[in-house]
Design a protein around this nucleic acid. Structure first.
Length: 279
DNA sequence: AGCTGTACCTGCAGGC
DNA sequence: TGCCTGCAGGTACAGC
């Protein structure tokens, strides 16, 4: 999924519905997606939900946390006890279905489902103070809209010849940007995705920094991109897919100049750009 | 340190 | 209808 805006949206949903409630039981339907000892989380109360890059951390009141990465197709679906008024949210699924791999039963009768078609994601119980040592979380760079400054960004781009798109998607350099927002930010900043990072002028660096903030904010405002599998914690879709600037727009005219958008492969990922206005 | 290909999985769209 | 290929919001790892 799930890049920074999508994971942020899930986080907000989980904060709203889970905090203050106690985990009564955990059912593992596909044990390989669960790491650690589930009994460490059973009986514990959820006291907070945090996000680092594209990763989530559910903090418990017993010094343990549940860390989660949903990768491409993971979903966290909360089903409360109240009778649904509309066929909205997770009601579209009959849960648990064949793709539901972990079920958290809450003390108030609510349920949180971890559903993941491609099974790439993971859910892990670990001591809260070991989050910072965790292989994924410890490797994250600074984050846009948080602690990444223009000065930091400039320093990152300055020293390497790596294609700028690959660099901004490198989670160890900058946390949270994935393929959709990388493509759109480079389009907004009018920078070709394959440009060596160090070749950007100071003006371009600043424009890209601002563009990253703009697209991520738009993503958060719209509840994320539900282009494929992504839904929020209630099963609702985001609408950022209606605002894609270049992502998956190959063959269509550029919104700025009318030139046909091209698709290339960069770092093994689909890359979309306007050959005329991105230089 | 960086880059490449490959692996982890399943589903889907498109070509024939 | 079916078979095949390529593609998909992401890491992670082996081998240059």
């Amino acid at each position: 999924m799930p890049e920074l805006p999508e994971v942020e949206t899930i986080k907000l949903g989980l904060q709203k519905h889970l905090v203050g409630h106690t985990i009564k039981d955990i059912t593992l339907l596909l044990p390989k997606q669960f790491r650690g000892d589930k009994s460490l989380a059973i009986g514990a109360k959820i006291v907070g939900v945090r996000r680092f890059g594209k990763g989530l951390v559910i903090d418990l009141d017993n010094e343990f946390s549940i860390a989660i990465h949903v990768k491409m197709t993971g979903q966290l679906l909360y089903k409360g006890t109240e009778v649904p008024k509309e066929t909205k949210g997770s009601e579209v699924f009959n849960l648990p279905d064949k793709y539901t791999h972990i079920v958290f039963h809450m003390d108030n009768g609510a349920v949180l489902y971890y559903r993941d078609v491609r099974q790439f994601g993971w859910v892990q119980v670990l001591p809260t103070d070991e989050i910072s040592k965790h292989r994924f979380f410890s490797s994250l760079g600074k984050e846009p809209l948080k602690d990444l400054t223009l000065i930091d960004f400039k320093a990152l781009l300055h020293k390497v010849k790596t294609p700028v798109k690959i660099l901004i998607m490198d989670q160890s350099k900058i946390a949270g940007i994935g393929n959709i927002y990388a493509n759109d930010a480079l389009y907004l900043a009018k920078i070709h995705p394959a440009r060596p990072a160090s070749s950007l002028s100071d003006k371009e660096v600043k424009e890209l920094f601002n563009a990253i903030e703009t697209v991520l904010k738009k993503g958060i405002e719209t509840g994320g991109a539900s282009e494929r599998d992504y839904v929020d914690a209630l099963g609702g879709k985001g609408t950022y897919q209606n605002f894609f600037l270049v992502y998956k727009k190959n063959g269509q005219p550029c919104k700025r100049c009318g030139t046909i958008i091209e698709r290339i492969k960069l770092g093994g990922r689909g890359t979309f750009f306007c050959p005329k206005c991105q230089n």
